[in-house]
């Protein structure tokens, strides 16, 4: 036993190396939301679409799992996920939107040019509503369960791959929950 004690520092070094190497692959920008497992705080965003009613936290607690997507017309990756949301909406997935740190006229033009996948849609030109929700940038997408609790937050574009591998299966699971 004692003869192999000299190996202990080497074993410890290798363990640290493995831990650090595993950490290298993790993206520090994708932090879990502080609201994970909890409902989002109360908020009310004014409408972006003329004559609409805007978006409040109560829209996220209607007994069905929903997506809440923060987007902006100036955001590059939002262009990639927009067609995905249009397709999902046609397939019956409930999606709400928050137009974050964007001028309302720019947000309206974005929807007019590219189509509108959102059921409820709030305008947040100052970004204050997004900050209440812990939004650090766009695009960000919250996955909310039947009881209005945040179950996942995706930072970055919801590409077809992200939907197929992560959010789609999660939504199916949330729909099956009682």
């Amino acid at each position: 036993m004692k003869r192999f004690l000299f190996l202990a520092p080497i074993v410890a070094f290798v363990a640290v190396l493995v831990a650090f190497f595993a950490g290298l692959g993790r993206d520090p920008s994708t932090l879990p939301s502080v609201y994970l497992g909890k409902p989002l705080p109360a908020f009310a965003a004014p409408p972006l679409r003329p004559g609409d009613i805007g978006l409040t936290n109560e829209d996220l607690d209607r007994g069905e799992p929903v997506l809440l997507n923060a987007f902006a017309s100036w955001c590059g990756p939002c262009r990639y996920e927009h067609p995905v949301f249009l397709k999902l909406r046609r397939e019956g997935v409930a999606i709400h939107g928050l137009n974050w740190k964007d001028r309302p006229e720019d947000g309206q033009r974005w929807l007019a040019e590219r189509g509108d996948p959102y059921i409820r849609l709030g305008s947040d030109p100052t970004g204050r509503t997004g900050i209440e929700l812990g939004v650090a940038g766009v695009p960000e997408t919250f996955v909310i369960d039947k009881r209005g609790r945040v179950r996942y937050r995706h930072v970055g574009a919801v590409t077809p791959e992200v939907w197929d591998q992560k959010i789609g299966p999660l939504m199916a699971k949330l729909r099956a929950e009682s």
Partner: peptide
């Protein structure tokens, strides 16, 4: 939270500015 190794005091990110004002 945008440029993670800077404080909001140092950062030029729009969100950092918002948080400084808040």
């Amino acid at each position: 939270v945008v440029c993670q190794n800077q404080s909001i005091d140092d950062s030029d990110a729009a969100l950092a500015r918002d948080l400084r004002i808040i």
